[in-house]
Design a protein around this nucleic acid. Structure first.
Length: 465
RNA sequence: GGUGAGGUGGCAGAGUGGCUAUGCGUUCGCCUGCAAAGCGAAUCUAUAGGGGUUCAAAUCCCUUCCUCACCUCCA
């Protein structure tokens, strides 16, 4: 599998010989997560599911930044503690992503629980001459790290002349960034240099090193983290260890709205709770995977409405496949071939820089093919058995979930269908329609084929009600 | 201003030299007691503009224009 590496600008093979170690920059927990966060995390969740489907072990680590000025500001505003704020939004995070059918990462380290690791790292950097203590804190000396700028392709001279860098007289150089900031106001921690808080970037270096070691396979995050966050992580980590930090840097494009980046500072975000209520998890996941991960996608209601139609086709396909009972036996060699080919194309697409839109088109071709067979009443049990495992496998890699139906429900549905069909045969259409209404109140849609009636359970989509 | 990524049919979105995905939409049709869902056919026959290389370019080169992101916190 190849992934485009931001650092080298080239597609690089993911080393799957042992476990694939992935560090993903998570969220700062001072507010609700939004669809932009969701996209990044869904992409990595899908990547992880794909690798695991290949039998590759994945060690996915995703941090929570739970110490930050934004958290403290919010706590002050709400007259509560920073810890309460971060705990609240971590809970909120897990609730959101559980509902998005995102598998749990292997660990979710929190910055506040790794202060000693950060202090070690900072001390190491001071010892090696890459960091110094000044009046306001401990700073990383950017000029000492000769590769600085290699990820974001920035030249240090340009950064220095950049008017937007705040002037801080206590720094040796304007581009130096804080590893530790002295502070008195809680939350603070003791350190060899004085009471204070860690800088933002150091946590990811400390925690990735601790949980994944140096030179792990993939470091991911949103594109907006390339500078300064990831640039600084590289500087800290490589200055400390002398070893390349991550083998591949994988950056996820922004979610835009009306062509503009969605961000809290612009105030144009759509929270995960909002989009889940409106569209549900499957539509959101399909939407997030509908464009190549490296490019921006635009949150557009029209597109999402389109996605509902696609999802209905998937639901239809699922129920056709599991309910097929036509036993006319036919040669299924052809089907096997087609299914195999689809599976290979699906994998090829994902192996080639995780091309999810291409993989989705393969998936929808399979769905369409099955629906075609069903429509022309050629979908026998035999054929279904050949398609179903591949269909379910793709569904699971994509993290999609069709609504489950209990056995009790199934019995009830088939008995109602029998009644309705009897009434239809007697041409008592009004009564038959009343039963159909009763069934549709259970979110079941009937599919009248020529010789039999099938059914599918539809996910309720908020916007349709 | 600097850096990076892009500009593909009505829309979304693949494709990195020849075989011009895929989906949605639109129109007509099939199926049906009527629907719904699904399916079929047709339609669109696109590659930002200009130049070049080539037998052949969306794909390579030059150039112009445009968009977005980053350069401050951000997924």
């Amino acid at each position: 599998m190849k992934i485009l590496d931001t650092l080298s600008g080239a597609e690089k093979d993911v080393d799957i010989s042992d476990s694939v170690r992935i560090y993903l920059c998570g969220v700062t927990v001072y507010d609700e997560s939004h669809i932009g966060h969701a996209r990044t995390i869904i992409v990595f969740d899908t990547l992880r599911r794909y690798l695991e489907s290949k039998g590759v072990r994945v060690n996915l680590v995703q941090n929570f930044t739970d110490v930050d000025d934004k958290i403290i500001n919010r706590a002050n505003k709400e007259n509560t503690s920073a810890e309460k704020i971060s705990t609240k939004y971590i809970t909120n995070y897990f609730d959101d992503f559980y509902r998005l059918n995102v598998k749990r990462a292997n660990s979710y380290p929190k910055a506040t629980e790794h202060i000693p690791d950060m202090i070690n790292l900072i001390q190491g950097l001071i010892d090696k001459g890459f960091a110094y203590v000044s009046k306001n804190g401990v700073y990383f000396s950017v000029l000492k790290f000769k590769d600085y700028g290699k990820l974001s392709k920035k030249k240090i001279e340009e950064l220095i002349s950049g008017a937007r860098i705040e002037v801080d007289e206590t720094k040796k150089d304007p581009t130096d960034f804080a590893l530790w900031k002295f502070a008195d106001e809680s939350p603070t921690w003791e350190s060899p240099w004085g009471k204070g808080r860690p800088g933002w970037h150091i946590e990811c270096s400390a925690m990735s090193l601790k949980y994944l070691g140096s030179n792990f396979e993939i470091h991911g995050g949103g594109r907006d983290l390339i500078f300064p966050h990831h640039e600084n992580e590289i500087a800290q980590s490589e200055a400390f260890s002398g070893i390349n930090f991550a083998k591949i840097w994988m950056h996820i494009g922004m979610v835009t709205i009306n062509g503009e980046k969605m961000s809290k500072s612009l105030g144009n975000t759509k929270s995960i709770d909002f989009v889940l209520k409106r569209w549900g998890p499957n539509i959101i996941r399909l939407f997030c995977l509908s464009g190549h991960y490296s490019k921006p996608i635009d949150y557009s209601e029209d597109l999402l409405k389109e996605t509902i139609i696609k999802w209905r086709q998937v639901e239809n396909c699922y129920f056709e496949l599991i309910l097929a009972d036509n036993s006319v036996s036919e040669s299924d060699e052809l089907i096997k071939g087609v299914v195999n080919e689809a599976e290979n194309e699906f994998d090829d697409a994902l192996d080639s820089d995780f091309n999810t839109p291409l993989a989705l088109s393969v998936f929808f071709k399979l769905v369409k093919g099955a629906n075609q067979l069903a429509s022309s009443e050629k979908l026998t049990r035999n054929i279904s058995d050949n398609i179903l495992p591949t269909f379910l496998k793709m569904l699971s890699i994509l993290g999609l979930k069709v609504i489950e139906v209990t056995d009790d429900e199934k019995l009830k549905i088939s008995s109602l269908i029998k009644q309705r069909n009897m009434l239809r045969n007697q041409k008592k259409f009004q009564e038959a329609d009343a039963i159909r209404k009763q069934i549709s109140d259970m979110d079941i849609v009937l599919i009248d084929h020529k010789n039999k009636t099938l059914w599918m359970k539809q996910e309720k989509i908020g916007i349709e009600n």
